[in-house]
């Protein structure tokens, strides 16, 4: 039982990192991306590729994954960030579908739909994280670092510039802010850290395939941010905890017929989102409008 909770807690940590990074661009920079799972995937594939081909060293996998994901995102952000709002959402949607096709077709690297099997456990300085509890500690420490780092950035002058751009791009521009640069940097940060979650995910599950990096995953991450509370420090973490544990908790409800568990889970998940948006649109940890 402990091992199972450890397993869930590790997945919660990974999802929380994803939600925190997505919240960084959604909540503070006002960039709504439906392609977050792509960078999660890039991180995971880079880590798996390195682990299977060369080394299981986390210290090598992490920077490589962060760099690749960050560079791809910047290359895309430069043209796409010129458009705003709804258009960017649609652009990210298109990118997500394209990337999923590439993930399933570039078989020499991604293993296609069959995925990559038997990824060795990560190690730091020769110490392999084979014990699930140790891995949880690793994921937990990473999550804390990410939360602290993100909170620090948000409070810094860079964070204030970001919020200024979110609230009024033209005003920020008038104040002499380099809007394009600030936006691009924030996308780079968000996707690079997102790739860290991908690395942990690949090393932890020791199996990855395209199904974890599709539009469904992207919408799930987005839901975590919104359910928890967009633009708050703890909201994304709470959202990640709830949405990761909900399916697991539902499997313990004894009165559900076995063949309907999956559907009932999904229905509760959908219904919860609808009700939350009607009654508490700022999310569970949300603060009143205007304070952010």
């Amino acid at each position: 039982m402990i091992a199972y909770l450890v397993n869930l807690a590790t997945l919660v940590c990974i999802n929380a990192i994803l939600a925190v990074t997505l919240n960084f661009i959604m909540g503070y920079a006002g960039i709504f991306s439906l392609a977050h799972a792509v960078f999660f995937g890039v991180g995971a594939y880079v880590a798996a590729f390195i682990a299977l081909q060369w080394t299981d060293s986390l210290l090598l996998q992490l920077p490589a994954a962060m760099l690749v994901a960050g560079l791809i995102s910047v290359a895309l952000a430069l043209p796409a960030l010129r458009v705003r709002g709804d258009y960017f959402v649609a652009a990210s949607l298109g990118f997500q579908v394209l990337a999923a096709t590439v993930f399933s077709e570039w078989k020499s690297v991604t293993g296609g739909i069959g995925g990559l099997v038997g990824i060795p456990p990560a190690s730091i300085g020769g110490h392999a994280f084979t014990d699930p509890v140790e891995f949880l500690a690793l994921a937990g420490v990473t999550l804390v670092l990410v939360v602290v780092l993100t909170a620090t950035i948000v409070r810094s002058s860079f964070g204030r510039s970001l919020k200024a751009i979110r609230d009024s791009e033209s005003a920020a521009l008038a104040f002499g802010k380099n809007v394009a640069l600030i936006k691009t940097l924030s996308v780079f940060y968000s996707t690079a850290i997102c790739a860290v979650a991908g690395v942990l995910y690949a090393d932890y599950l020791s199996f990855i395939n395209v199904e974890s990096f599709t539009i469904d995953a992207s919408t799930l991450f987005m839901a975590m941010v919104i359910v928890g509370g967009i633009g708050t420090v703890w909201g994304p973490v709470v959202g990640a905890v709830l949405l990761t544990l909900l399916p697991a908790a539902l499997t313990y409800l004894p009165f559900l017929p076995r063949t309907e568990i999956g559907s009932v889970q999904q229905m509760i998940y959908g219904l919860a989102m609808v009700l939350l948006m009607i009654f508490k649109p700022d999310g569970l940890m949300g603060i009143k409008r205007g304070e952010a």
Binding site: Y4, N7, L205, N209, A248, T251, G262
Partner: peptide, 22 residues
């Protein structure tokens, strides 16, 4: 003990962990 994989690998891994550990 039945677990639902939805025929998806990731769900399968989570289910397998649960069966083995719980």
């Amino acid at each position: 003990a039945y677990e639902d994989s939805q025929a998806l690998p990731q769900q399968g891994v989570i289910a397998m962990n649960k069966l083995v550990n719980v």
